[in-house]
Amino acid sequence: MQGGRLQAAGAHILAIAASLIMFVPVYLIGVNALKSRAQASSMGLEFPTELNWENFLVAIEKGKLASGFINSVLYSSLSTIIGTFIAAMAAFVLSRRRTRMNRFLYLFLIMGIALPINFFTLTTIMQVTHLINTRTGMVVLYSAMQVPFAVFLIYGFVESIPRELDEAAIIDGCGPFQLFFRIILPLLTPVLVTVGILNFLGTWNDFLFPLYYLSSSANWPMTLSVYNFFGQYQQSWNLVSADILLTVVPVIVVYLAGQRFILSGLTSGSVKG
């Protein structure tokens, strides 16, 4: 099996090459974040000759990363909790009670996966509801935007929970709230984790809503802070790298911790086994 082994080696070389190409930009950010300004000017692959840890301090201070981090955590976690939760309630009822009306509501909701947002008229809504340029406004907007995809994923999962459980719970005297919170919600945990991670990362990475609706920098999430920092320090790639690195570290941590759920969520929504 000489040929087979050679083929396997070739396949590994290709896979390693592909992985390296995908990893290079993250690596670049990692090494350049520690360089001096002069050494980082070409964003090269070489290791830093001296370790400039103070780059991070400058980035945190000048880039307003502390408040950016708090805002990002606030927006991502609160909207993920609210969005996933209300989507689960809706998906549960829509999936269990298949009336014509509910079928329509379900399709109407998941249509949002495809639709674009009209930022002009949404501005008016944000002004009327006094949500524009506020942290609450961001949380509410992100919660709303997560609903269509979350309903779609959870709806499919509810079908896999036997209805006999509902019957048994009702006979035992559960009301609809108890049924949902004590019986159904715990069984939905796998899909809720998947939806939650995807929504969290999606919100953390977004900068469209802040770009349109947050004028005061005190409310900016990390993405918008980074973009603004880049505008000011374009010539100092060491500082920009440090700033970027601090922004993506939380994303990479969540990704590595939850990659099993992320990958399963992507496929359960789209490919059937």
């Binding site: 549960f92 008229t121 809504i125 509410v140 609903v147």
Partner: peptide, 22 residues
């Protein structure tokens, strides 16, 4: 057992921030 008001928060947010603007 499956009350319609469970769907309301999701539908309300979706309509106010998605459908009405569009």
């Amino acid at each position: 057992r499956y009350p319609v008001y469970f769907v309301l928060p999701a539908i309300a947010l979706y309509i106010i921030f998605f459908i009405i603007p569009s």
